[in-house]
Design a protein around this nucleic acid. Sequence first.
DNA 1: TTCTTTCATTGACATCGGAAAATAAGGAGC
DNA 2: GCTCCTTATTTTCCGATGTCAATGAAAGAA
Lengths: 388, 388
Amino acid sequence: MPSTSPAETFPAHTPAASQIFTTVLTHGPLTRQETARRTGLSPAAVTKAVRPLIEAGFLVEDAGAEVRPAVGRPANPVRVDGGRALFVGLKATGDEIIGVLTDLCCRIRVARRVPLSGRAPREVLQVAADLVRELLTEAEGFGVRILGLGIAVAGDVDRATGTVRWSPFLNWHDVPLAGLAEEVSGLPVTVENDVRALTVAEQWFGDGVGLSDFAVVTVGAGIGCGLVVHGRVVPGAHGVAGEIGHVPVVPDGPPCHCGDRGCLEAVASDAAITARVREVTGVPVADAAEALALARQGNEGARAVYARAGEAIGRGIATVANLLGPERVIISGEGLAAYDLFAGQIRDAFTAAAFGSAARCEVRTRPLPFEEWARGAAATAIQSFVGR
Amino acid sequence: MPSTSPAETFPAHTPAASQIFTTVLTHGPLTRQETARRTGLSPAAVTKAVRPLIEAGFLVEDAGAEVRPAVGRPANPVRVDGGRALFVGLKATGDEIIGVLTDLCCRIRVARRVPLSGRAPREVLQVAADLVRELLTEAEGFGVRILGLGIAVAGDVDRATGTVRWSPFLNWHDVPLAGLAEEVSGLPVTVENDVRALTVAEQWFGDGVGLSDFAVVTVGAGIGCGLVVHGRVVPGAHGVAGEIGHVPVVPDGPPCHCGDRGCLEAVASDAAITARVREVTGVPVADAAEALALARQGNEGARAVYARAGEAIGRGIATVANLLGPERVIISGEGLAAYDLFAGQIRDAFTAAAFGSAARCEVRTRPLPFEEWARGAAATAIQSFVGR
DNA sequence: TTCTTTCATTGACATCGGAAAATAAGGAGC
DNA sequence: GCTCCTTATTTTCCGATGTCAATGAAAGAA
């Protein structure tokens, strides 16, 4: 599938130019003046950096709506032309691959999910290649080239080398995924841990825009956490960070597969909730959806299970807030479907357990459609392309 | 006390020069070649940056011991001349002020502690001024000028503005300490939270040298934690970070003053240990020293209390390691006097509670003489002087 | 003594980004 | 409509910074 022409490169060859582009990308249309202010550069520098980016089509003048002081020369806002380039993001789980085609502004154009037959790198790569090919075909319809491919995988991932050191669901060890995927796709590939990829998407295109310190907590099959400190995603010295799932939150709580008791994941993960609902209510619910349905029907036992999970999540978030003092925590994940059942508990437990100023940290929830994980992967590809 | 001449400034006017100086400062004697390699600059740039620093006396050629490949031109290492400048560091507690006079390499030359009569900013400032004056006199003996003053205070401190927003032990609210101290001392003043100051000292002059991600955990009257992520100390969005004291570690543990139960601080702080030893053994120990003595005498009940504290500390550290994935955790603080009584428990609990790769994080202990807190303050002053 | 190797220095040069002046594009006042 | 005022953007010039490639320096090896 290798494309015939070499990958297009981004015409921002200085850190300042990258910074300017990123600022415009993440903060919508901006005048050159405002861009200068935000980046700490001079307006002259912005003018000079913007020109080649406009010539290359990545930025466009945007005469659109603009609030002006109504006096003086009208400002001339600039924005990123999302349609200038496309990116593919893939999220691999143990069962399937979710793929999205996004534009340069990380807006999803096409989304697909395909089941996995096997988990060996070769098999997964085969399915991924087919999916990318399909999305490439779709892209032809837009008449725009795809400039990068991002892949998100749960587990221990080294983005710098594009290696999956260890992935629990896929049972991979030291797979040089970026290299392999580059061969079959012909695209520049970025490989990142799934939660960190989601965090990148929030940082550039979501609720983390403009914040230098925030956390993303995902609730679902597992409990994950992505951290941004000093404006950069925390990768962890050993490739692992944000393991919030094993923070102790419930005294003498249920045993966790990690060997401890009362871990957040042992109380609030889908599996934990489902098991506990079965145990408490005697109703043999098969999965999280059924457990949720039971609680929604008003089953008090099931509702109590969700309440306890909410309390656990709130305490887990408080631990993060106490340790890092983020500006905001964004809660997301499939588990948010039950949001109405534990929102109150999350907030109350957080407030109770957050110490001092940490309570000033804003807790926000954000529904997460299934493609969002793959979009995160695309965001990492955009990041790599832009050169940050 | 204002000095007659204006404060001397540091002749490194570019970020690269600061970086070069910092590299030599923290990594001992280095050849220009090696400095270039470590900073990612060219050897030419190092030569040019080093010259004015040598002329100003901050760096000196060091013909001392050097491992050489024995072939080619001998390398010409350069090191910081510690004696070129002196700094004062103060640590204010509720009862006393600890002051040290250090050289540019943050080696302690003189240490003093003086009791506080009152806690009002005015009173504290008066005592601090006297102490600084005394140290200035000492400095005259060295024939070197003092180029900066660092002050470490527990609580919510905004280093950028030099304001103590809130200090629990001193009961201060929004005290513009840096400005006040500059007036009475005539020195450039840096104000920082005490744990962060200690962390800075470790980062530049201690066990954190060369690490981009590590944590310092202090055990004593309280349990504190300083974090370095991406090579920078984490200040927290609201000026507060590293509140490890209220991580829940003991299921249904003793109530904590924060309102929760089983917080690390409610189990492992001096006061918690002392109270618990009294409760368990019936011996009316008055303070941590007596509790420690009792345990050292072999009192099983007291030893068990320390063992439990060690377990709690280990779990608290594991939480930090799980969340941030640091390369190393440095345990320090007055509480370390009891190290032999809980070292094993710390290690075991950490290993048990650290998830996956987080267990690869190295846990190190470091005895902390009482002046070390004040030395941390001096380190922040050095940092400010050098311009990082 | 000469060669080789490695570290350090030098000087030419490119690049980046800032300052200030010039230019552009409106609205307001008359 | 014309002029002035204000603010945004661009242009021009210029200094600072850091790299490159060549050169010098100081050993040990041949």
